[in-house]
Design a protein around this nucleic acid. Structure first.
Lengths: 204, 204
DNA sequence: GAGTAAACCGAACGGTCGGTCGGTTCCAGG
DNA sequence: CCTGGAACCGACCGACCGTTCGGTTTACTC
């Protein structure tokens, strides 16, 4: 929240990152296009022109925000890739891990992932973010496909379709999850998603 | 696409509804706030000022769009309500029907539901749409909760959480589904979602 | 306390926004 | 052929957009 410069103590001044935190919160509330620099200034408690002391402009705030989410997601996928090669049965574990970790990151980086998932593609920067996101989706779908090939998934579900649905469920968490004491933890949600996805809702 | 006035035949003129179709498509591509009246005019092949001959303004196009989705969803829920009372085992069927029908409507009214799901709440009209949507979510969650009380759902999943996740998966379909020959039909998707939700991904 | 650089501000810029207004074109009914 | 209304257009409006710029305040060093 508050941001000090280096070791010394100015009262409360902004760094690009601490300003980003405020900006992303407003973006998620009003939508990127629906947010004016005046809105950001008001939320940050400084004037419009002061924002330009910290960042180049509105678009930089968007790029920084979505890249933070993309970097976190990519790092998690890299970790899962190092697990290979795996015996057939292990491919199911990898998908399970992918789902679980995806929910965890989504919750850890909630505002940034939320922003990413809502990018529309009106500018070049937004299209670049969408492209990076599609690459992530492709890697996730790859895990599911390999599990299907290994024969550890139900055969009556198209792996591509299943992948879209599963990670659609994962991503939908940003629409309602809010952290806080007495609420669900990240692991609560991650484990609920994982169980639901793999074993379904029906009592057996 | 083309719109005739009543019984007679002008070449291609717009009605409020046929203009809405164009507008909603553009809204979904660029986002509501990211769409200018000039954008709409270009897409419709008429000038900005001509749009105001058919509708009051930009906000009316939004309201008409989201209400079309809301009315369709509500009508479907009303049909499910008339099924009661049901024996315990039937409560599972009701949830299954709710999921299946939700996907069907989402696909049938894809552009309008897409628009609805992206409404942010910046204006009074948008907040009204959000309120109507929350009411629908509540009714759907009610079905899940009754099934849980009837003991036909897994006991280790919080019904509220499960409901959010299931309908999060349902709603995520708007992010990627596109109709067309040689692609998945609405029922393909609806049945995949239903099977996945109730029986999971794991091979048995 | 003078000097410095970061942090911030007020006023203004050109441009675009949603919306208005006074027409003109088109076409069916008489 | 004339008329009336629906459909449409070009020009324009005030407001607000993201951004810029010259200047002031603040906090810290020497």
């Amino acid at each position: 929240m508050s941001a000090q410069t280096g070791a010394s103590s100015r009262r409360t001044t902004y760094t690009p990152d601490s300003l980003l935190e405020v900006a992303v919160a407003v973006f998620n509330e009003r939508g990127y296009d629906g947010t004016s620099m005046e809105d950001l200034a008001r939320a940050a408690g400084i004037t419009k022109s002061s924002i330009y002391h910290h960042v180049k402009g509105k678009e930089e705030l968007l790029t920084r925000g979505v890249n933070r989410a993309l970097d976190a997601l990519n790092a998690s996928l890299d970790a899962l890739d190092t697990l290979e090669p795996l015996p057939d049965a292990g491919e199911l574990d990898r998908v399970e891990q992918a789902v679980f970790r995806a929910v965890q990151i989504l919750v850890e980086e909630l505002p940034y992932v939320t922003l990413l998932l809502r990018v529309r593609g009106n500018t070049e920067a937004e299209r670049a973010a969408q492209a990076r996101r599609r690459e992530i989706d492709r890697r996730l779908a790859g895990f599911v496909e390999r599990a299907a090939t290994a024969g550890v998934l139900r055969a009556d579900l198209d792996p591509h379709l299943a992948s879209r649905l599963v990670f659609g469920m994962v991503n939908s968490v940003v629409e309602w999850y809010r952290p806080g004491p007495g609420r669900w933890s990240a692991d609560d949600v991650a484990s609920a998603v994982t169980h639901l996805v793999f074993d379904g809702l029906r009592r057996r």
